[in-house]
Design a protein around this nucleic acid. Structure first.
Lengths: 357, 357
DNA sequence: GATCCGAAGGCGAACGTTCGCCTATGGTGT
DNA sequence: ACACCATAGGCGAACGTTCGCCTTCGGATC
């Protein structure tokens, strides 16, 4: 072992003049240059152990000169911690999940962690595969934001058995800590607002109805109406699938079936853009003839025509909070099981009392 | 070395009953269980070398039973390839960079690569630090989508010296292959469209003027107008900083200064939402009194009031193409230096001939 | 002048792989 | 009966770290 043929310095000599190429320079190369053992270089570069200031200086210079860059792979292998978080997220080309993702990334970064990103197909079918990849990469924790997998038992099992995880949505079988945004109020506040304005024929354009979050909002919508003595009317509920075009089409269907509606609670702002457009096409003025409330407070909502009354959802904060909770869980075995972030109404110009007639 | 105290099997015995815990099970553990050397397990699990079918079966079962998950860290360390791409991107809470990011992630995934995500502060000041992290993690390549760093010489230097890189924007000092979206046409097409409709007083709401892409679009806007004999008028150019509110404010300023304008070329759709709102507030009907053209073809553009004529930009494709180019570059030293993706007009209801008066 | 001590730094082992090479073994061809 | 060969599987080394322990040495203490 003593007389290692030292291919390292050989390699170094072979390298073309001054290309500063991709250079796989290791501790050993630095050590050779500074005439110390590579372990001493490690000590210096990590600030551990006592080293003579002169030697230290020499080592630091040597490292600099040959462009040493520590190998995080090797470090992680030894230290059994990759300083990496895995994130599995729904397609984030829409701003809602993108905001959470930005929140996650920022907070992770702030704690010195890198993020490995996996975005799923719409049906979430590839989740198990990506989870596996994350586990192979020995991520220190996982953040889930993939409502499409909320029914998948296999995913639930893996998450309970695998590395620490925090989820932004429901996990089949439970047992995974979560950070969520007040579900109840995200439907109750807007519906109550409409009721308070005097509306009784209130429709809703829902998100994908097979998602818990959409079902829940619709259920709350019904409860609140019932609580105010407004009878349930299935004609007033249409699926907009979270998309602009879905909101547009749903509104046309609603107006065909229930022309007497005076308000629409739209389960996200993106759909609300389609809703406003459809109402405009049908000659219904907003808010004079029909009020509209959205949900999310998408940047666009402030400047739709008219500007949209909506529910502010702290997506960014949810992402950041999830990372904090995850880190707590990694550190101590105790730590909160659940965190719920509050929502708030943003009143703009798309709501008013129903028409007098 | 022969009589390794085999802490592995010890560990295994010590483990609580059947928790299937985070389990750092290694090749050695599988080997012990199947009564072979760990290298043979490696052979089987990688499908290399000749192994007796019976043994093979035994090994596979053993691996299954104790829940073996290969350690990608160790594998990468040995194989000198991490199967990872680093992505440095501008804040992607807006859908434009998010789309590219999705494209990158999808394509990387398709080739079996993971993506490490780094999103920058708006000023891009942390780019060098993140680049360093990516290099420490020994990513196989880097994709840049961070226009904020386009002037940063240090970033340029690192990218030329570091692992293979493909950029979606300009890099200071050049020398980095890029995938871009036709810059010229993204301004020329909409302006020519407006000219063809008969407009002469055409304003533009620009993106952040310190960005090349915005400067370039504004330059093209000027050239095309000049080419049609329309004199340059600085009163008709306002900065909207890529944001909804910026577009809104810029439009008010434009209308104050140049009330005779009859069309606005808005350098992205998000700002166009603000522009439409401001025009509406000022009582200018679109397109009767004023035409508006956007850029990007954001999903919302199809249902603004009125639906927005815009330029379709293939952001998703650009991300995917960048990954493909990067992989080509990693594989062979040759490969394209530059790829430019075409744009196309999407005609909707926000443009018409200028008012007769 | 023997003892002790702290500072400096070397050494071996380990993290979990992959890979090339070596060695048994049993079967085939002459 | 001999060489030959393919098959099966073991072994050592290496990837680049970190960590604990050991040795060496010079100086202060009694």
């Amino acid at each position: 072992m003593a007389a290692r043929p030292c291919c390292h310095t050989d390699d170094a000599n072979v390298r073309p003049s001054e290309v500063t190429t991709v250079a796989s320079v290791s501790l050993r190369d630095v050590a050779a240059r500074a005439n110390v053992s590579f372990q001493t270089v490690s000590k210096v570069l990590n600030g551990k152990g006592a080293v003579n200031p002169a030697t230290r200086q020499r080592i630091i210079e040597a490292a600099e000169e040959i462009g040493y860059i520590p190998n995080a792979l090797a470090r992680s292998l030894k230290s059994r911690s990759s300083l990496t978080l895995g994130v599995i997220t729904v397609d984030f080309s829409n701003s809602t999940p993108a905001l959470s993702l930005v929140g996650i990334e920022r907070e992770a970064r702030r704690h010195g962690l890198s993020v490995i990103l996996s975005s799923l197909e719409p049906d979430g079918s590839d989740c198990v595969r990506y989870l596996r990849v994350l586990m192979e990469r020995r991520v220190d924790g996982i953040i889930m934001n993939a409502p499409a997998t909320e029914e998948d038992e296999e995913v639930g099992r893996l998450l309970r058995a695998g590395p620490p995880c925090v989820s932004l949505h429901d996990i089949a079988g439970g047992g995974v800590p979560s950070v969520t945004i007040e579900a109840e109020n995200s439907a109750a506040l807007p519906v109550r607002h409409l009721l308070a304005l005097g509306h009784r024929r209130i429709a809703t354009v829902t998100g994908l109805q097979r998602r818990h979050s959409a079902q829940q909002r619709t259920a709350v919508y019904r409860e609140v109406l019932a609580g105010h003595g407004v009878p349930d009317d299935p004609l007033l509920v249409e699926d907009g699938a979270w998309e602009v075009e879905g909101g547009y089409a749903a509104t046309h269907r609603l107006l065909d079936r229930a022309p007497d509606l005076t308000a629409i609670y739209v389960q996200n702002d993106l759909m609300a853009v389609g809703v406003l457009n459809a109402l405009h096409e049908r000659g219904r003025r907003v808010p004079d003839d029909c009020s509209v409330v959205g949900c999310d407070d998408h940047p666009v909502a402030a400047r739709t025509i008219p500007p949209l009354t909506t529910v502010r959802m702290p997506f960014f904060d949810a992402g950041a909070a999830a990372v904090r909770l995850l880190l707590d869980r990694i550190a101590e075995r105790s730590a909160a099981e659940e965190e719920v972030l509050p929502v708030s109404m943003v009143y703009r110009a798309s709501t008013a009392a129903p028409p007098a007639g």
